[in-house]
Design a protein around this nucleic acid. Structure first.
Lengths: 203, 203
DNA sequence: GTCTATATTAGGATAGAC
DNA sequence: GTCTATCCTAATATAGAC
């Protein structure tokens, strides 16, 4: 009797199921415009049943932000720790893109919907983001000290510009595209380090 | 009797007043989470009175998107047309940042809230965005043909990367900061063209 | 752990007086 | 051109049976 547009039935439903489904919806329609109705339809539950797994809709957003940042922070820490010094920045770029493209929905949501959180929770996420930025800035500072990176631009600017380049790529990258995340990482590494000007051109 | 948090009283209220106020709110709280109540409070009208100036809340979002894109398209077209060939890309970057930072609220809203529009209106805005991208890509292609820009990276990638760099800067630029938009433009031009690596470093 | 039924609040928008 | 009053719909969340 009820319209059931593709009920998932992918095993038992847990809080995790909801987080993943919510990330997809939040990314497509925005956090605020996504309703518990839509979420319940997607996972194949009645609205009320959602509240057995979560307390509020905001919990889902918070969990998405925490999870995406935790994942990328630990992955980037590990890959940077493993690499030899001159390869650290390329490794960082590669890992960032792998993670962000793997968890596209969660990352996009975290970047865009952060300020829909309550002040306390927003503060938590903002702190995690600056923790991540610090990892990158430290790496860039080290590069500047070792004279691998230019010193006429501030570490702050070099960091923010790199984050622009990396973070917002998920908004135009399509999974069905010919290029792999790794190829994209190589391309962006080349561009970030050496620029778009042809070799030997001074402008 | 009524709480009136800083009523504006900046001359007569027009549709334009609402667009500007809405851009500010949409940017701070998101389009969907912004209510007509909040808008009416900010401009100092009753809720019903808004509808003398606009038809729907979505009209405001649409107007914001159209206006920000029209402004930047015509400004960039003009500045690129004026400049001599090797200076065109720097001029483009400078003009883009001037405009986007001047109209921060409208630009941020346009970038983030585009998909809250109805399908028809969204299509209009998407078309305007690709028109803008085409201007940039054409400029980059010309640079590649003249061998000022590297040819081992596709014009598409060079364009998208430049847009990453330019568009998302408005999310961390603060008006009270020491640097002017022009200084920021010079910094990003240097970085985009020549990269973050120290001169003479091959990695 | 999921359901039906519902409480409660607030949303966008309209009617019609002044 | 702005107001008061209100319509109608839908939102998040809860109560309590199964």
């Amino acid at each position: 009797m009820q319209e059931r547009p593709t009920p998932p039935a992918r095993g038992p439903i847990t809080a995790d199921t909801l987080v993943v489904a919510a990330a997809r919806l939040f990314r497509q329609r925005g956090y605020s415009a996504t309703t518990t109705r839509q979420l319940s339809e997607v996972v194949g539950l009645q609205r009320a049943s959602l509240y057995h797994h979560i307390r509020t809709k905001e919990d889902l957003l918070f969990e998405i932000c925490v999870r995406s940042l935790n994942n990328i922070i630990s992955a980037v820490r590990a890959s940077v720790g493993d690499a030899a010094h001159p390869d650290r920045l390329p490794a960082l770029i590669d890992t960032h893109l792998q993670l962000a493209l793997q968890d596209q929905d969660m990352h996009a949501t975290m970047l865009i919907e952060l300020n829909q959180l309550s002040p306390t929770r927003r503060a938590t996420i903002v702190a995690m983001r600056s923790e991540y930025e610090t990892i990158i800035r430290d790496e860039i500072r080290a590069g500047q000290k070792a004279r691998r990176l230019r010193q006429d631009l501030s570490a702050r600017h070099l960091t923010l510009a790199l984050l622009n380049l990396l973070n917002w790529t998920i908004f135009w990258y399509r999974e069905d595209s010919a290029e792999t995340p790794r190829e994209l990482a190589q391309m962006l590494t080349t561009l970030y380090l050496h620029g778009a000007a042809a070799a030997g051109v001074d402008s």
